[in-house]
Simulated scan of single mutants.
Amino acid sequence: MDTFLDEQRSRLRQSLRRTDVVFFLLCTLVGLDTIGGVAAKGPEGLTWMVILAVVFFLPYGMLVAELGTAFPVEGGPYVWTKLAFGRVVAGVNQVLYWLTNPVWIGGSLTIIALTTFRTFFVDLDTVGTYVFGLVFIWAGVLAVVASLRVGKWIPTAGALARIVLLGFFTVSVIVYGARNGLQPLDGGHLVPTYVGFVALVPFIIFNFVGFELPTAATEEMNDPQRTVPFAILRSGVASLLLYGGPIVGILLVVPAEVAIGPTAISPMGIASTDPMASYE
């Protein structure tokens, strides 16, 4: 078995540079589907984001950076768990970790992609909906199984798309504010509450996970002991800016009674009279 593993590892090629890992992490950490949900709870969303950045995001990034540099081997979290608790626990951990991906890709991500396509391009019937979903899911699967030499460009393109989109949104808010003025943030709404904790913390924690993903390919990085902490630091700071900028922008231009009053803003930015719209 060891001979087989050594043979397989000898075929690995170091094709991930520092910038590749930074873009990989940005594509992983920055999601567009939860920004509206956080902003819909008003300024309190910013407070919880800062709190979780300190008590969760920062130590989580430091932990992964330490493990990624201390054990720069292919497999990342599986290897770390195996070294600490054995193969059985590592296998269970990896299965549970993996299960979230088909649920996310085949669920919310496919629904968002389908809704976007039907809204801006062509409406689809029942058959077309299933065909689109299957093509989208299998395209994602093929992107994952492709060699990193080729597949690394997919998260790089995703990261650049996020930077351009959220950057354009932030600039648009600045232009709008210069022309029409901005509303001040109510300090009273910055105070964290239990209701805000229940509604916001799952969103924000979901946004703040993903640092460990590139460590599964540590032996395919150039100088992993420097690349891992370099990428985690820069992607972490960039993620906070890419999340915080649009959320602050929404709070500055959308009236408070719309954002957190009876007419809530859904995660997709569409006004709704349903007060639970921000949680759907």
Rank of each mutant, 00 (worst) to 15 (best):
W138E: 13
W153Y: 15
T215C: 12
V228Q: 01
V191W: 08
R162L: 07
F24N: 08
R13F: 04
G210F: 00
P224I: 07
A271N: 11
S172R: 07
F117P: 00
V173C: 08
L182N: 01
L213K: 15
T110M: 05
L16N: 03
F4V: 15
R179P: 09
M49I: 03
P214G: 03
P275D: 12
L32H: 11
L240G: 01
A159S: 06
S15W: 10
V198E: 12
V89C: 11
P275M: 08
E66H: 02
Y194H: 11
F211M: 08
L63S: 13
E280K: 14
D123C: 06
G106R: 01
K82N: 13
G236K: 01
L160N: 03
D186G: 07
E219Y: 02
F206A: 05
F206K: 04
L148F: 01
Y130N: 13
G177V: 15
T110R: 00
F24I: 09
E7G: 10
V88M: 13
A259D: 09
M62K: 14
R17I: 10
L185G: 00
V55P: 07
I51E: 04
L165W: 04
V64L: 09
G36D: 05
G106P: 03
C27S: 15
V55Q: 06
Y78F: 11
Y130K: 12
L142P: 03
L252G: 07
G187F: 14
L241N: 00
V54F: 07
G151A: 07
Q8D: 13
R17H: 15
W153T: 04
I35K: 01
T170R: 02
E74V: 11
A39N: 02
F120Y: 15
E7K: 15
A53T: 14
T263W: 07
A65D: 10
W80T: 07
N93Q: 14
A139I: 15
M221C: 09
T110L: 06
L25Q: 00
V228T: 08
I35M: 05
A146L: 13
A256V: 09
I137K: 00
T115Y: 10
W138I: 14
V191Q: 14
S239A: 10
V89E: 10
E74N: 15
I270L: 14
L83W: 10
T19R: 13
V144L: 12
Q94H: 10
V21L: 07
G167I: 00
G133H: 06
I265A: 01
T116E: 12
F120L: 13
V122A: 12
F211W: 07
V79D: 10
W153N: 09
A217L: 06
I137Q: 02
C27H: 10
T110K: 01
A217H: 05
S15H: 12
R13S: 09
A143K: 04
T227N: 12
V88Q: 13
V191R: 11
S147A: 14
S266M: 02
F197G: 06
M268Q: 13
L182V: 13
V191S: 11
T81V: 12
F132Y: 02
R179Y: 12
R11M: 11
L233Y: 06
R234T: 09
V191T: 13
T69Q: 11
R162M: 05
G128C: 01
M62I: 15
G188K: 05
F117Q: 04
V150P: 01
D274N: 09
G36R: 04
D33H: 12
E219T: 01
